[in-house]
């Protein structure tokens, strides 16, 4: 909805060529208000429907960390040495991981869940995915309060470079939005995607060094899993003040940005096909 002339025709997106990027950014900028409103909407709705409200997002880390601590204590798992007290280590890891996990699963369901909005109103659909990502980032902020509490409890003094934390999280956010855009699109055509995503996320979490340190021996999967440097970078930053594997991190950041741009482009091409299949 704007004051410009709109032309609708088949495959219009393809005819625009490279000019499409300008249009994509312009559209997104134009609808920034809507992203904010949808974010607030979901936030306050969630808060209103439950007694614990946003505290729910703290339950899962506690359960997971408790389980891992028990397994370690009982000798079933050998987590090994971590650069900070384990509960803190695991909490930071999980909080960062969940930026990815909740962002991805809610993003993948954002189009399908929007219902009437998609079929009855015209607006750039990526707004929905981005608003659900904002939700996931917001939850991280709540968990960050808990992380600060843990600093005090375990008398751990983080590096001052912690102020760069938001910067280090940016690639992860790009990666999440990128993947969520594609999954949301596919979910519109096949509803199986939502289930597949939650299944995959569970496996991925155990295969990524979230609750344990990167294994010493160079296992191929851990070398290839570029989620691993993205999840570990924030933790390194807090513990040591710098990223331990900067090369890996930069590479992963580059891949993330690329995935985001490609996905966004694909999403933009295909989003017009979604309302008619909902």
């Amino acid at each position: 909805m704007n004051d410009h002339t709109h032309i609708y025709e088949p495959h219009k997106q393809l005819k625009l060529g490279m000019k499409i990027w300008a249009e994509m950014f312009r559209e997104l900028f134009q609808f920034r208000e809507l992203i904010w409103r949808l974010f607030i909407r979901d936030l306050s709705a969630k808060y209103k429907q439950s007694v614990l409200g946003n505290l729910w997002s703290l339950v899962m880390p506690f359960v997971a960390i408790g389980t891992f601590m028990y397994l370690n204590h009982a000798g079933i798992l050998d987590i090994g040495q971590t650069q900070m007290p384990y509960p803190l280590y695991a909490l930071i890891g999980l909080s960062v991981w969940q930026v990815f996990a909740t962002g991805l699963s809610s993003g993948a369901n954002s189009l399908v869940g929007a219902g009437d909005l998609i079929t009855k109103i015209s607006f750039p659909r990526e707004v929905l995915v981005i608003a659900s990502m904002a939700q996931s980032v917001f939850e991280f902020l709540i968990k960050f309060v808990l992380i600060i509490v843990f600093f005090l409890v375990f008398q751990f003094s983080p590096s001052w470079n912690i102020v760069f934390l938001p910067l280090v999280l940016v690639p992860l956010v790009f990666l999440t939005v990128g993947l969520a855009l594609i999954l949301a699109l596919l979910n519109g055509v096949m509803r199986d995607i939502g289930n597949i995503v939650s299944l995959l996320l569970m496996f991925l979490m155990f295969l990524t060094p979230v609750l344990y340190p990167i294994p010493g021996k160079g296992l191929l999967f851990f070398e290839l899993n570029f989620l691993s440097p993205l999840v570990n970078a924030p933790r390194d930053l807090i513990a040591f003040g710098h990223i331990q594997q900067p090369g890996h991190f930069m590479m992963a950041a580059g891949i993330s940005l690329l995935i985001f741009l490609v996905s966004w482009r694909i999403f933009h091409l295909a989003e017009t096909k979604i309302p008619e299949r909902m």
Binding site: Y8, E9, P10, K120, S122, T272, E276
Partner: peptide, 9 residues
């Protein structure tokens, strides 16, 4: 603009 035309403009 919710549905794109399959032909015409």
């Amino acid at each position: 603009g919710i549905f794109m035309p399959d032909k015409g403009r």
